[in-house]
């Protein structure tokens, strides 16, 4: 049998990291909030690095509800966008090396977003993972959950609907 040799692991990682960087690196508001993404294969974890400016209630103290909402929405839209690009980047249809914030294809847009606040956000780092439960030609539905110290004790969860960009052809 004539098999193709496996692709070097460095190349695979570089292509995926490059794609993620193009999605995240160019967005000023993601930088303003101090959100990073941790990638394992196609699994993303959004990390909200705590900063004093994120406080909404200085007496508790607790993270601002708007920060929590923005963090979960960012986790959802990056997860959905990364999933949308994945197949084309893996097949080579999109050249990851050439991907920059300016050359990205059009991305999904939020239609609506609903956040449940389960506990107050403590003044420390927070983590979020999103799951695309449906991604159709026009609409997508995404769930997100977020925690701080213990993954079993969520401090917020959310559901959002997104409008997918029109595809060429």
């Amino acid at each position: 049998m004539n098999r193709k040799p496996p692709e070097p692991v460095e190349l695979i990682k570089q292509r995926r990291d490059r794609t993620l960087q193009a999605l995240v690196g160019g967005v000023p508001f993601i930088r303003f909030l101090g959100i990073d993404f941790d990638r394992r294969g196609d699994e993303l974890t959004a990390v909200l690095n705590f900063d004093e400016k994120l406080i909404g209630n200085p007496f508790l103290p607790a993270i601002h509800g708007g920060v929590t909402a923005a963090f979960l929405e960012t986790a959802a839209i990056i997860e959905l966008s990364f999933a949308m690009l994945w197949a084309d980047v893996e097949s080579g249809a999109i050249d990851a090396e050439a991907l920059t914030p300016a050359t990205l294809p059009r991305l999904p847009k939020t239609i609506d977003f609903t956040v449940d606040y389960l506990r107050s956000g403590l003044p420390r780092d927070a983590y979020a993972r999103a799951r695309v439960n449906r991604s159709g030609r026009r609409y997508a539905s995404v769930q997100v959950y977020a925690w701080q110290d213990n993954r079993d004790r969520l401090f917020a969860q959310a559901t959002g609907h997104f409008l997918m960009p029109a595809r060429d052809g």
Binding site: F29, I30, G66, V67, A70, E73
Partner: peptide, 13 residues
């Protein structure tokens, strides 16, 4: 265009 999350923060406040 401004991030939806910034609008969320304004709405929540």
């Amino acid at each position: 265009v401004i991030h939806g999350g910034a609008v969320s923060a304004l709405m929540d406040t």
